[in-house]
Design a protein around this nucleic acid. Structure first.
Lengths: 108, 108
DNA sequence: CAGAATGGTAAGTCAATACTTACGGTAAGT
DNA sequence: ACTTACCGTAAGTATTGACTTACCATTCTG
């Protein structure tokens, strides 16, 4: 089987660190859009948007579908899954650890 | 009321983008720890760790408690909440959007 | 009250990365 | 076929940010 694009929490977090890329994600929440349309709402050049989309694609957060000369990008349905799993694990540990601490305090 | 540290999805994502800071988060999952103990497991200097902890603190992901000369850092119980909310919203939109597309395809 | 331990901050250096312009390649319209 | 539209990639520049050493304040210890 061929290698899929690496889509762990690391790549996703590193991709979502950039505010411009978060803006692209927000735009794609309305539905699929070609590159030019995405670039129209941003103060940067179209090639820059292409580069950002490549990063998001490599992180597994978006996918592209060629439709004639245009490429429609959309959010990858399961792109955020590993990231959510990682955050949930961390959050659960933080909460239970906090609760243990609080109980020890109360038992004092 | 005094200003809390800004803890939106933006700051959290930008903070979690760095692998060293993710390593600190992982270490803190075992429980609170002073700075020197955290730095001992990492190949960087102690001031660098302090700077990373400051970023995590500003993002609302960790909190510090002074105990004598040492400062015990621990995961903030609700630090990941806004981030999880943002990701959930994005993921839901991506899934429903994908489902709508699939239904339109099926109705063809 | 020294002296050692702990850790936050300042200033400077170096690498990672976000942007630009220029270009090439494919698809749609005339 | 020629022209226009759409988009990805290459190369170069500039900004961001991660790390270092040096320094200072606070707190525990002998």
């Amino acid at each position: 089987m061929a290698y899929e694009t690496r889509a762990g929490p690391d790549a996703a977090l590193s991709a979502l660190a950039d505010p411009t890329r978060r803006g692209l994600i927000e735009q794609l929440r309305s539905g699929p859009a070609p590159v030019a349309a995405l670039a129209a709402g941003l103060p940067i050049s179209r090639p820059a948007v292409s580069q950002h989309l490549k990063v998001l694609n490599d992180a597994g957060l978006v996918v592209a579908e060629a439709k004639g000369a245009r490429r429609y990008y959309r959010l990858a349905p399961e792109g955020a899954a590993p990231l959510l799993a990682w955050l949930d694990a961390m959050w659960d540990d933080a909460l239970s650890s906090f609760q243990t601490l609080a109980e020890q305090e109360a038992a004092r």
